[in-house]
Design a protein around this nucleic acid. Structure first.
Lengths: 129, 129
DNA sequence: GAGAAAGTACGAAACTTTTCGTGGAGGCGT
DNA sequence: ACGCCTCCACGAAAAGTTTCGTACTTTCTC
């Protein structure tokens, strides 16, 4: 029902982040951004995009000579997948444990905490009789 | 200040889970449990424990002929590391986003939700009531 | 039209992860 | 003592990840 695509690797995630931020992009555009952060060759990025196309992580528009890539899954969908898998791998499926680790690890802003509270209200009130 | 050891791989995590649950264990003990879940050879487990010893993920007591392995980091420490790294890799450091993904991904029990609320109270009202 | 520039495809090297096979050492039963 | 059973060390195969080099094609420029 949810994911058939494999979990993106670390390097793939770097590319996806650029695509989520910029929207559909060319290899060159992605490479220039990535290269600004860490030396990254053009063909390296190209190869990853080819691999990611095969894996179904991105779509390619090859109608022009310079291909344009776009993500197939939203950032939220991917985050959800990563959380779900981490939950299974390391938290015995207990979302509460993960949440508490996350909250104790990095401090969120007051606004974010309020948002989390709202979400708790929704979850609790949602199906209670 | 926090972690120098590398993030455990998926297979390594399976072994760590057994060690956290059972406490210090021999290769045989771990292998039997793992094998109950999924066919897993003895030398496979042994090799992983040797690698994990090199990586500093576990300690080995070799004073007896049958070595005994124990984890070097607690389950909570490891979970914290995994969350922190996932936060950086995929959530732009926003714990709130991760928390909300976790909450919307799997439903927690009422008790767990209450526990999260308590933690929010603690974080927010660090000094006030 | 020739040559440079920019793009894609392909292959492969280096590394990591996962999984075993083999060999050798140590201890036990008879 | 002899053979068996258990254990560890080592090496290596197979797969996955990361990174480029090279070759080929298309387009632009003079």
């Amino acid at each position: 029902m949810s994911d058939s695509t494999p979990r993106p690797t670390d390097a793939e995630l770097e590319i996806l982040k650029v695509l989520w931020e910029r929207g559909p992009s060319t290899v060159r555009e992605i490479q220039e951004i990535l290269n600004g952060v860490r030396p990254t060759g053009y063909t390296t990025v190209l190869k990853f995009l080819q691999i990611m196309t095969e894996k179904g992580l991105v779509d390619r528009d090859a109608s022009q000579r310079t291909h344009v890539y776009r993500t197939r899954r939203s950032e939220e969908q991917t985050q959800s997948q990563l959380v779900r898998e981490l939950l299974g791998r390391a938290f015995g499926g207990s979302a509460a444990k993960l949440v508490m680790q996350a909250l104790s690890t990095r401090k969120a802003t007051a606004g974010e905490l309020a948002e989390i509270r709202r979400m708790l209200d929704e979850l609790e009130g949602g199906d209670a009789t």
